[in-house]
Design a protein around this nucleic acid. Structure first.
Lengths: 349, 349
DNA sequence: CTGTTAGCGCTTTCAC
DNA sequence: GTGAAAGCGCTAACAG
């Protein structure tokens, strides 16, 4: 066996470093936390001692001594599709954990699809918040509201839906064009050379994430799978009934329909229409977001694949990024990257 | 907007609870941490105060006061396929973070494929370790060694490869039969009804994860895709050269070969043989683990899909589970579940 | 059974 | 520029 060397079990403390460098606690603290007012020579001496003793800050002690608490606002949609319900629940759980870390989350439910309402909410946010996570809308007023918050020193992360040109600190969510491309590749390959048309059903084409998905989908489908023609996108407004009607009509209108890419919500409507038509097994259907409903459709074989973003991961990531920012601690990009999950019935969690 | 109510920004401390319940700090501590020796009546009084004030323990203060440090051993393979190299690197990074949490990781590199060497290492592990993460082998001696550690009160988690009937605390890794089934569904669907044979190339059939994957693969393929015949599994010993030879021979022997499921390592060998044969674009190839090499093959179109387990997630999860166990803190199963990732070239991280 | 008290390692005034 | 000292909220040892 090629052994790993054992490291000392006891860790060096600030005091050890102070002793080794022949300075006081306070001075070491200044150096370690990069505060000013220390002679360059002293800095060097302390840094040498830090390196020699392998000093690493004790996160628990630092947080305790600082004694600061943080308040974050999570601005989530008032509407209730299953994905958003799951997300809200995960935010709630994250809040339980955060409370343990001296940070507190308030959840504000607003109509995030109305830019004015959303912007208004952000504008009127209590100055007590050091951080905000928001399902954004890429709209001038919303961007301005985010920029105002940022200017006030509030850390803003966008969640699930981004406002790319705003001064948000970070976006917690998937790469939507890539998700669309992923759906297209699955669709193209599952279709295996058959010739016909494929429909795209979005919630609303004024939602950035839906259009981005549709864009990515079309891009790959048209360039790589010339055998299938992508139909112009339909808008179901994320509403089950409306989406059902749209799908039913689509199925009668397009006898050559091979597949459906549903890049928004309203999947229960699609399932109903597909099952009523008797073509559920023939039409390849790819949907977004693993929920209790889409899971059922996937297991049953009505949905062929689900593209997912993990709401639990997103909620935790938003909280971690906000907290790390407030504590001036680093984050690990690797850990915070939200994956584009692909679920088949075989790899369901 | 349906407002979320603001919670008090300042949190209740143990002392607040003590005052409210009319008892001392120590008593509250006993109740909160479920230690014995408190009258039921007092317990009730304290718990009422806790509920009333919404008291939540301050994790930082608790850890600091306990002042205990932990040492964990990570037993990883000495061999160097890309996946294991990545894993080692991620364990290293996790160690940096853990050091901040008063916990220290030593990495021991051993030949984990030799049950006696592995068991020997576990048996002789310094008693200084409170926790061990090990890429296990499902072998009697290894199981016994794990059980001994567990009996000594050492927390053992198996990593990537499990020893299910041992007394390990937890398994950090994917469901391998499910991974095999996932590969089969992708294979079957990508093949789209074509008729021919499909090969399975494993590292070694005495590795539990490889056989489990192969089992899951065969299961779905034979039941759902009668058009393709699965060939008996080949063993490439996770060695590139040997796997290249095996694959080259396979390609000449089986002119009707439609697909390859590579459920172990040695993928560079497969790529070479496939590309040399000129059939790289025709043969559907599904491999495991996203590495610098498999990524290249996927982008290039030689590999059609990669089934992955995230080594970063695995390293962090192992560390979190071990630490939480030592601190008697709860873990979130949701967060610790290792996903079976599917990567196409479109959703690569 | 319950209370008192001395820290844990760091940050933060406030002096020098 | 640098140092001394008072906590942060909790745990654990010891008294009662």
């Amino acid at each position: 066996m090629t052994g790993g060397q054992m490291q000392p079990a006891a860790r060096a403390t600030l005091e050890d470093v102070a002793r080794a460098a022949g300075v006081s606690l306070a001075t070491v603290d200044r150096v370690v936390n990069r505060r000013e007012g220390v002679r360059a020579k002293t800095v060097a001496r302390v840094e040498a001692a830090v390196a020699k003793l392998g000093y690493r800050i004790d996160a628990a002690a630092a947080r305790l001594a600082r004694g600061q608490t943080f308040r974050f606002a999570f601005v989530l949609p008032a509407g209730t599709n299953s994905f958003m319900t799951n997300l809200t629940e995960q935010v709630q759980r994250t809040a339980d954990w955060l409370a343990t870390q001296r940070a507190f989350i308030d959840v504000l439910h607003v109509d995030v699809f109305d830019p004015d309402v959303l912007a208004g909410t952000l504008e009127e946010l209590s100055p007590a918040y050091q951080g905000v996570a928001v399902i954004a809308l890429d709209h001038p007023r919303v961007r301005a509201a985010i920029d105002d918050l940022a200017a006030r020193g509030v850390a803003v992360v966008t969640l699930v839906s981004d406002a790319p040109s705003s001064r948000r600190l970070h976006y917690v969510g998937i790469d939507n064009p890539a998700a669309g491309r992923t759906a297209a590749t699955l669709m193209g390959r599952f279709l295996g050379g058959r010739t016909g048309s494929v429909a795209v059903i979005a919630g609303s084409l004024s939602l950035r994430d839906h259009t981005e998905r549709q864009f990515g989908f079309h891009q790959i489908l048209s360039s790589e799978y010339p055998n299938v023609a992508a139909l112009p996108a339909l808008e179901g407004r994320d509403d089950n009934e409306r989406t059902r009607l749209l799908t039913a009509e689509l199925l009668t209108r397009q006898p050559d329909l091979l597949g459906i890419y549903s890049c928004g919500a309203g999947n229960r409507g699609i399932a109903e229409a597909l099952e009523a038509s008797g073509r559920a097994r023939d039409v390849v259907w790819i949907a977004h977001e693993l929920t209790q409903h889409t899971r059922r459709f996937l297991v049953r074989g009505t949905i062929d694949a689900i593209i997912n973003q993990d709401p639990g991961h997103e909620a935790r990531s938003a909280a971690r990024v906000l907290l790390a920012h407030c504590l001036a601690e680093p984050t690990s990009p690797d850990q915070e990257r939200i994956r584009i999950d692909i679920f088949l019935r075989d790899n369901l969690p």
